[in-house]
Amino acid sequence: MTTLLEPSVPGETYTLLRERMTIRGELDADSFLPWIRRHASKLGLFQDIVHSGPDRIEVDLAGAPELIDMMEVGCLLGPINVWVETIDRRRVSNAGG
C-alpha cells in the first residue's frame, strides 16, 4: 500500500492523511461502490470500504489532503441514482493500515 503513496519526485515529502469518510443519504450500493472504487483509483488514493448499506457507506482513504478533498467533492454528486445527503470526514490513525 505504501508504494501507492510515495511522492513522485524523490526527496519531496507529502503530508499524508488517512481519513474515514462517512457518506450518508439514499445510497444505492450496487452502483455507488464501484463508482467510489473507480474514482478513488483515478485519484491514486489508497481506499478500503469498511461499511456499506442503503443509507451509509464508510470508506478509509489515504493520500494527499487535496486528493481526499477531491474524493469528497466527487462523491457529493456521485452517480445519478444516488442522493448523498452528507459526507463526514475524520482522521484515523495509521496503525494497522
Binding site: 511522492p7 513522485s8 507529502y14 483515478k42 485519484l43 493520500g63 494527499a64 487535496e66 486528493l67
Partner: peptide
C-alpha cells in the same frame, strides 16, 4: 500541475 491547488503534487494516477 493543477494551478488552483499549487501545493498539490498530482499523483501518477491523474
Amino acid at each position: 500541475r493543477i494551478p488552483a491547488h499549487p501545493g498539490l503534487t498530482p499523483p501518477d494516477a491523474i
